[in-house]
Amino acid sequence: MDNKYKAKLGISIGDINGIGPEVVIKTLSDQRILNFCTPVIYASASLLNKVRKALSAEHFNYQQVDHADALVPRKVNLISVWQEDIELTPGNPTPASGKASLASLMAASADLKAGKLDGLVTAPIDKDNIQAEEFRFPGHTEFLTSYFDAADSLMLLVSGALRVATVTGHMPLKEVANRLTPELIIRKITILLESLRQDFGILKPRIAVLGLNPHAGEKGLLGTEEIEIIRPAIMQLKDRGHLVFGPYPADGYFGMRQYHQVDAVLSMYHDQGLIPFKTLAFENGVNYTAGLPVVRTSPDHGTAYDIAGKHIADETSFREALFLACDIIKKRTMEQMPVV
């Protein structure tokens, strides 16, 4: 990839009755985006025209193409994945909107797998409404891990130098403790270490690991997972020469802003990591799936049905997701270039 090459980024539209189409169009209305990538939206002309008109987005234009082999550089490209005129009911998911979100995701993923795209940026789906024979997963992360035959993956939330990952993802809280093992934690930290090196250019990453229980178990008084599971995993990685520290009490760690001292923080479960992350960086945070053979990012928010159709959605997180995908693609490409 030379310096003039612009990454081809697939964009799945998400649930069309959420804010996905709005933040996509608002982001791509800024023509300067085309200096960094060639965006490829997987949706329909009817949908884009409706949303563009509702937003009065006169600066948003696109080029419709039949397939990913015919992309037009320096243009926003559209590949139509459904032809029917689907009624929009902002804030209210429908079977049709769930079907459309799945069609968009599957088409973009297929082109990415075929090497016709360099990366994928996913707008928010409704995790219940998208369920179908081809999609029996709790979210994008699990689907893409399976679709791209990855041994494992890691949900990594990113905002500048703030990076927060989770050992367990979309699962009931009552199942977390039983799922944790030293092997699982070592596997997740290994993915995180490799991603920090490969995707973020950090040669010797420093990782802080949070405990599971209040006060990190208080030496076994409030739980033994830190003693029996988390600490042994950390010690094994330290013995291998990695800079991994903890386990730390989650509340105090974020309260004292100790995350500034490391390159990433590993939480034990979804809300333990995402609540502080979104408190600190909700507007510009990005969800990155580490561990995949491909690059996938998304905004750190959901469908936001409560504001869908009101034209007040903030596109910053989606724009940051697009830029992070470009940055990671560039770093991975440079990593693969032969040294002259």
Score class of each variant (00 low, 15 high):
Leu192Asp: 10
Ala177Thr: 15
Glu142Lys: 09
Leu193Gln: 11
His170Asn: 08
Asp149Asn: 11
Leu184Asp: 08
Phe143Cys: 13
Ile125Gln: 03
Thr190Ser: 15
Glu175Pro: 06
Ala132Ile: 04
Asp152Ala: 14
Leu184Thr: 03
Thr168Pro: 01
Leu180Val: 07
Asp126Lys: 01
Ile185Asn: 09
Ala161Glu: 14
Glu194His: 04
Ala150Met: 01
Ala161Gly: 07
Asp126Ile: 01
Thr181Glu: 02
Ile130Asn: 00
Asn178Cys: 05
Thr141Leu: 05
Ala151Phe: 05
Val158Thr: 07
Glu175Gly: 02
Ser195His: 11
Leu162Trp: 11
Ser195Asn: 10
Leu117Thr: 02
Asp128Asn: 08
Thr168Ser: 11
Ser195Ile: 08
Ile189Pro: 04
Ala161Asn: 10
Val121Asn: 00
Val167Asn: 09
Leu196Trp: 09
Gly119Pro: 04
Leu173Tyr: 10
His170Leu: 13
Val176Asn: 15
Glu175Thr: 04
Leu154Glu: 07
Val158His: 13
Leu162Met: 06
Lys116Val: 02
Leu157Tyr: 15
Thr145Tyr: 01
Val121Gly: 04
Gly139Phe: 05
Thr122Asp: 08
Lys127Gln: 07
Ser159Leu: 07
His170Asp: 12
Leu180Cys: 12
Phe137Leu: 03
Ala177Gln: 13
Glu194Trp: 04
Asp126His: 12
Ala132Val: 11
His170Trp: 07
Ala150Val: 04
Thr166Gln: 08
Glu133Ser: 02
Ile186Trp: 07
Pro172Val: 03
Thr145Gln: 11
Leu117Phe: 07
Lys116Ser: 06
Ile125Phe: 13
Ile191His: 07
Ala150Leu: 02
Phe135Lys: 00
Val164Met: 15
Ala150Thr: 08
Glu133Lys: 10
Ala150Asp: 02
Lys174Ala: 01
Lys116Phe: 06
Val164Lys: 04
Phe135Met: 00
Ile186Thr: 06
Arg136Phe: 03
Lys116Ala: 14
Ile130Arg: 01
Leu162Asn: 11
Val167Ser: 09
Val164Phe: 02
Gly169Ile: 01
Ile130Met: 08
Arg187Tyr: 02
Phe148Ile: 06
Ala177Val: 07
Pro182Phe: 12
Gly115Phe: 08
Leu173Asp: 15
Ala150Pro: 09
Pro138Arg: 13
Pro182Gln: 12
Arg163Trp: 09
Thr181Ser: 14
Asp126Gln: 10
Ile185Leu: 10
Pro182Asn: 12
Ile189Gln: 13
Leu192Pro: 11
Asn178Glu: 04
Ala177His: 08
Ala151Trp: 05
Thr190Glu: 14
Ile125His: 04
Ile185Trp: 15
Leu192Lys: 02
Val176Lys: 06
Arg136Glu: 06
Tyr147Ala: 15
Val176Leu: 11
Ile130Gly: 00
Ser153Cys: 15
Pro124Ser: 04
Glu194Ser: 15
Lys127Arg: 13
Ser146Val: 03
Thr122Trp: 03
Ile191Phe: 02
Ala132Glu: 06
Ser159Gln: 04
Thr181Phe: 06
Arg179Ile: 01
Ala150Gln: 12
Asn129Leu: 06
Leu180Ala: 05
Pro124Trp: 14
His140Met: 12
Phe148Asn: 14
Lys188Gly: 14
Tyr147Phe: 09
Leu193Glu: 05
Glu183Cys: 05
Asp126Thr: 13
Phe143Lys: 00
Ile186Lys: 12
Ala161Lys: 14
Pro124Asn: 10
Ala132Cys: 07
Arg136Lys: 08
Val176Thr: 12
Leu157Ile: 09
Ile125Tyr: 00
Glu175Trp: 07
Asp152Leu: 03
